[in-house]
């Protein structure tokens, strides 16, 4: 697994000056601080456009673009922006990049643009982006913010894809538009309806919580001696 060896990777790509490759900033967004599955941010697009895997990827990539660009710009302007108007400035920066993304998607594929609808414009109010600008990019170097944006963006895309694949396979019987089940499969229509979005996300959260709880249990079982020593003292 990638996230287990940031130290080794950093040693491998040893940069003599500055922060090195800042791989840790990149990796934390993928898993440990995943914006959707751990921080539970940016719920609107997560639930609204994940009724198919293609939509999920398009939305994830658009958010990734806006996140990286706004992180880089906010971080490079962090010493210029006055503290009192910083939030308004961040929102303006984000809105500019979202407008760019909106027009680019429209130029690449009208179909995707139609499927995502107003939700591309709604990237502006995605809490993840403003959250990263305020909590990270306004305090860190440009390179670190770039890595942070990339990590968070890819983590977000990954989470959207988790939801999108499950909902499309169960609700439509297809994956990326190709048939996944034999014809006899009866689609679970509810999965592509709004209710299915809530249920799928709830089940993924349950799954990850369960895994975390199990990991914790294993962890305590690894050191039985320590506990027994304490018991003797008690």
């Amino acid at each position: 697994m990638q996230q287990k060896s940031p130290g080794k990777l950093q040693q491998f790509f040893h940069f003599p000056e500055g922060d090195g490759l800042a791989t840790d900033e990149f990796i934390k967004g993928l898993w440990r601080e995943n914006p959707v599955l751990v921080q539970v941010l940016g719920m609107c697009p997560t639930l609204a456009v994940t009724n198919s895997a293609t939509n999920a990827i398009a939305m994830g990539l658009a958010t990734l673009f806006v996140l990286v660009m706004s992180n880089v710009l906010v971080s490079s302007l962090r010493k210029v922006i006055p503290k009192q108007v910083r939030i308004a400035t961040y929102i303006l920066i984000i809105a500019t990049f979202v407008t760019v993304a909106d027009y680019v998607i429209q130029a690449i594929s009208l179909e995707v643009h139609k499927a995502l609808g107003a939700f591309i414009a709604l990237i502006v109010v995605n809490c993840i982006i403003l959250g990263r600008a305020e909590a990270f990019a306004s305090k860190n170097t440009v390179w670190k913010s770039l890595m942070d944006g990339l990590g968070m963006g890819i983590g977000f895309t990954f989470a959207l894809l988790l939801l999108g694949t499950v909902r499309e396979i169960l609700g439509n019987g297809t994956l990326f538009g190709f048939p996944f089940f034999p014809d006899s499969f009866q689609e679970w229509v509810i999965m592509i309806l709004p209710g299915g979005g809530f249920f799928t996300l709830a089940f993924w959260l349950l799954f990850f919580n369960g895994m975390k709880a199990r990991k914790k249990d294993n962890h305590t079982e690894v050191h039985p001696e320590k506990e027994s020593v304490e018991e003797v003292y008690v």
């Binding site: 209710g195 809530f198 249920f199 919580n209 369960g210």
Partner: peptide, 22 residues
Amino acid sequence: PAIAKGTALTLLVAGILSLTFM
């Protein structure tokens, strides 16, 4: 159950509410 506490449970309830509104 401990793992369902918090957001997961709220989302499940929201899903049922959403079905109701349909």
